[in-house]
Design a protein around this nucleic acid. Sequence first.
DNA 1: CTGAAAGCGCTAACAA
DNA 2: TTGTTAGCGCTTTCAG
Lengths: 337, 337
Amino acid sequence: MMNISEFAQIAGVSKSAVSRYFNDGYLSEDKRERIEAAIAQTGYAPNIAARAVRTRVTKLVGVILPKLSSESCARVTEGISEVLNREGYKILLINTANDAHQEIESLELLRQNRVDGIILLATVFTDLHKSVLSKVRVPIVLVGQQLKGFNCICHNDEEVAYTLTRRMLQNGAKHPALIGVLQEDRAAGAARRAGFEKALEEFGMTCDPRMMETAQFTMDSGYDCMRRIVSRRQIPDAVFCATDDIAAGAMLCLRENGLRVPEDVMVCGVGDSKIARILYTPLTTARLHHKTAGIEAANMLLSAIRSKSVVPRSLQLGYDVIERQSTQQTELKYETV
Amino acid sequence: MMNISEFAQIAGVSKSAVSRYFNDGYLSEDKRERIEAAIAQTGYAPNIAARAVRTRVTKLVGVILPKLSSESCARVTEGISEVLNREGYKILLINTANDAHQEIESLELLRQNRVDGIILLATVFTDLHKSVLSKVRVPIVLVGQQLKGFNCICHNDEEVAYTLTRRMLQNGAKHPALIGVLQEDRAAGAARRAGFEKALEEFGMTCDPRMMETAQFTMDSGYDCMRRIVSRRQIPDAVFCATDDIAAGAMLCLRENGLRVPEDVMVCGVGDSKIARILYTPLTTARLHHKTAGIEAANMLLSAIRSKSVVPRSLQLGYDVIERQSTQQTELKYETV
DNA sequence: CTGAAAGCGCTAACAA
DNA sequence: TTGTTAGCGCTTTCAG
């Protein structure tokens, strides 16, 4: 592939003219035309890496995520991609496969690649994370988790869980259970559990530890947790699940055990994923606006890159409760739809 | 951030020594240690862009895909990421949002970025595509579609559709319908339809055009297509759907119309996505090994990059039929599980 | 095994 | 407005 000198020669102009054509464009019409003609003829395109060396700007944003084949991550990334693409930035994608170790390494990789900024779809923060993160010298935005001193886009996980749980209690649940995720995940784990407990407290209840299970972010894991609960012979009449996938697994297990949703057990999830709508019993859940989160994260990052502003900002997104059949009140038949 | 000269000075060695440390490692133990100590002290890491300018190797692979929030694309990308990551290559991700125009532009973008290779999760090939693709000067692998003269990883779409359809006919279906996708998609569109028709032919049937609909790749679209079929008052007793999402929409519509699956209408999809397992009636489908496709695509690309071999190779992956309840024979009750 | 020096392709002063 | 020139940070001969 040709370089700028050779191309300039073909176009019959100087290197600077070519450079100006692709940058500020401080150029006479004559030269502009000759350059355009030469491009059409040769297909010349400037070498981005060389430009990056010179300008110290890569127009590259690193996106670190734990898992692509999770609907929420994919949607966030679509949002990110949409605005970055439009603004002429490219995405260096790093899938850590849920490996905290890789997450740390990624940061190093991105540093070597001199990305202009980083978006981290975060899960768990260890002390190591915090220490490495605070050493990063480019703007960074965290999505899905809140960490003091950093730019964040997050959801109101506690309120979401609180609202959904309360809904089930209002609809008559007396023995609620929780299938959450690990507490180290401050958002999907700790906060959602806190919301669950807050609702219980409001109704003067406390949750039996045997009614609380911790799942992975998968259907299978939700299934296993539900089976563990059911095996204890004290069947709950409502289950709050930290994600829709977990809820789907839980429902599968309930069905296998001859328990009807919502007649015997109410179930709800979080995320409004595709599956929620089409489950055996349509699932009550909360829409979390993942794509919007991605869009806002990218916007926040760009403005940080451009303004060099150092004041960390934190944006909490709203949510919508989607009430479906899985949490309907069924004792008073005339109230069901 | 420091450069190699400054760092070499701190370490008390020459630039060349530092470079050798990070590359071939033709170096005395003494210098090696001093360099390592200096790294620990300063956190120096070489600038990848400068290296790329010099070596003309970016260790960057462009991945172009139509849509991230599609389970199949996400899984392919996970496979790609897994091997590329391991081999020290990075992913430049481009989400075209199903826009053929953007797909073309992406190729240009990747050229400017001097990626070492390209993986294209392909959908539709226009003549423009072919012409642009043949101008690409780096190795390229197509996933999901077959195109003569290019490296491809693809599925046996026709056989998949044939096998699934035949299964429904064997189970007693007499009036099969098809909800496919546009024919321009040679794989998911044309080939799957061909397989469907081949099975019908084998059973001495032809398909009434009113029993064939073309959907987008979404649940909603599957729903709409099914509604159109149902509205014609000639209800099929089996529906082959080109994807699981489409099948899910179709089943939703059937249920709303009081039609039972599989008793009144059998349904099957393709892809073995998460939803298939947990639908109202568990869906018969075919597992397509998307992640494997990604892994193989990345391996194929790497070997092309390394060997500079120019002979295009084409790899067709196998599939597994997952027979679930949605296509069960129901007239002979004792044969159902 | 080592260091000096040339140069990858580009941009940005600077002087014209 | 333009062209010349000096680097950006790195690798890689080449001569020692």
